[in-house]
């Protein structure tokens, strides 16, 4: 990386880069804004890839190693593109006591993938999360970010099947 104080140009014409740039501008291109900026990248593009981490690191004058370290340290950031749909099973304690581990097994069987993976056709990603805070109605599953509570294995597979129908 050349030693320069100049900020790099936007990686492409994609309007989403302007949103990312907006977040950095709001924080005065301060190094502290690294996590905030990566949040914006992920919410705009769905995940963090190498060019985006490089762009953010250069713009904020943060060492690439630090940017990569942060991107991999926090569970919320994903370095892989998500599928068209995402099924997220909550594995908080209340959900676990009410059988969310069985829901994960059920989803694994249905999709033939493990949590953190996406089906080969790119349709569905399976993920787990540590508590979304709707413990009163455990177990909870998020379908594309939308909460479904008091989930049962049969209802879970029905929802997954509905996504995979052509």
């Amino acid at each position: 990386m050349p030693l320069t104080t100049e900020r790099p140009p936007l990686p492409s014409e994609d309007r989403r880069w302007r949103i990312v740039n907006g977040t950095m501008r709001k924080h005065g291109y301060s190094r502290n804004a690294l996590i905030e900026t990566l949040h914006t990248v992920q919410s705009s593009f769905g995940y963090l890839d190498e060019p985006s981490i490089r762009f953010v690191a250069r713009s904020l004058r943060v060492p690439l190693s630090q940017a990569y370290g942060v991107a991999t340290f926090y569970h919320f950031f994903s370095l892989k593109p998500p599928g068209k749909h995402t099924c997220t099973v909550c594995l908080g304690t209340a959900c676990y006591i009410r059988g969310s581990d069985k829901l994960v097994v059920e989803a694994e069987k249905r999709l033939h993938i493990h949590p953190g993976e996406t089906t080969p056709d790119g349709e569905v990603s399976l993920a787990t999360v540590r508590c979304v805070g709707d413990c009163g109605r455990a177990p909870v599953v998020l379908f594309d970010g939308e909460l479904s509570a008091q989930m049962e294995p049969a209802r879970l597979t029905a929802r997954l099947d509905a996504w995979r129908k052509p």
Binding site: L91, G92, T93, A94, C95, Y96, R130, C131, G133, D134, C135, G136
Partner: peptide
């Protein structure tokens, strides 16, 4: 509020 199974702060 990272404690799984707690949602007071939320």
């Amino acid at each position: 509020e990272g404690d799984p199974g707690a949602f007071m702060d939320r």
